[in-house]
């Protein structure tokens, strides 16, 4: 075991893992995090705690991660390169690991110009690959980014993300391989609505044998309405929402839309489960955490991975 997190244990044991996501509040309202943690803890093994998502200032991901931990939800703390340089990130990670956080997800981060402080100075001292490598080296080489010794080292299970729908498409599996070479233990993907494109990408991933070197958790999420589908298609960078999905959402009565969104999500999960090389599912509910339980149950992802995990003795 590299970090001994429940997520790592489940993946190592070959259990189909389910992770989800908690968005921190735009205030000091800790109850928001605690409530979401309680809502998700019986359905997911671990939950991402986002780091100022879309460049909007929110409560610190590490602080929220600790609150989730207190509520019995294992956190995957997200770290972006947008707001902190290599010094701040390392110091934050030492603190996080010391406080019992065991999973970290390394991302580039959305550009600040898309967020609520567009005049701020973007940092991007590192990119997500260099960040991934730095965290891996902190753990495995026991050294800081500058090469100085780090003892005792943070035991962190290192995650990274990939967007199979980003351009240039041909580069996306190469980038995944780079992230794995940099030290990613697991990968979460962008929300998948275009299954056809995702299949192509997975084929490339398998052709390169990457799926045997990393745990890939496929990203899914329920769409709430036809409007939300259109918004994601047209306005969210890096999203690929095919016309047929928009049509399906538009084709049902308004009050049936949420049900349809969950249905699409469950169908997607079932298709993904059949794919070789998919180690689990990452459900991004986007402020609709109530839906996660239903999705997990309907998709047949129970018995609860969380409870199973709890029965495993927590050793490294």
């Amino acid at each position: 075991m590299k970090a001994g997190s429940k997520l790592e244990q489940a993946l190592v044991e070959g259990r189909f893992a389910v992770t989800s996501e908690i968005g921190p509040p735009k205030s000091v309202d800790a109850e928001v995090v605690r409530r979401k943690a309680r809502l998700l803890r019986d359905h997911a093994l671990a939950a991402n705690i986002t780091d100022n998502p879309t460049g909007v200032v929110r409560m610190a991901s590490i602080a929220c991660g600790l609150m989730a931990l207190q509520e019995g939800m294992e956190p995957i703390v997200q770290v972006t390169c947008r707001d902190r340089n290599r010094m701040a990130i390392q110091s934050d990670l030492l603190g996080a690991a010391a406080m019992g956080i065991k999973n970290v997800l390394c991302l580039t981060g959305d550009h600040p110009s898309l967020g609520n402080h567009p005049q701020s100075k973007p940092v991007f001292d590192l990119d997500s690959l260099q960040l991934t490598q730095m965290v891996r080296n902190m753990r495995d080489e026991k050294q800081f980014q500058n090469g100085e010794e780090l003892n005792p080292e943070p035991r962190l299970f290192v995650g990274a993300v990939e967007n199979p729908f980003g351009h240039p498409l041909q580069f996306r599996s190469v980038r995944l391989a780079k992230k794995v070479n940099a030290g990613a233990d697991f990968i979460q993907t962008q929300l998948i609505f275009n299954i056809k494109r995702f299949r192509e990408w997975m084929q490339e991933v398998r052709d390169r044998g990457i799926h045997e070197r990393v745990y890939i958790l496929a990203g899914v999420g329920p769409i709430r309405s036809a409007g939300a589908a259109r918004f994601m298609r047209d306005r969210v960078p890096g999203m690929d929402v095919p016309e047929e999905v928009v049509q399906r959402m538009a084709g049902v009565e308004r009050n049936e839309a949420r049900k349809e969104g969950i249905k699409i999500c469950v169908e997607t999960i079932q298709e993904l489960r059949e794919m070789e090389g998919i180690a689990g599912i990452h459900i991004m509910a986007l402020e609709w955490e109530e839906a996660v339980g239903e999705i997990v149950e309907t998709a047949g992802l129970k018995p609860l991975p969380m409870r199973l995990a709890a029965s495993v003795s927590p050793e490294r």
Binding site: F124, D127, L129, N163, H167, P168, V174
Partner: peptide, 21 residues
């Protein structure tokens, strides 16, 4: 690159344009 990335495009690259504009 808007984010000065050194290891390839971020996930926001689409149809040859940057996610920010």
């Amino acid at each position: 690159c808007s984010k000065s990335l050194l290891n390839g495009p971020c996930g926001g690259s689409h149809d040859g344009v940057c996610e920010i504009s």
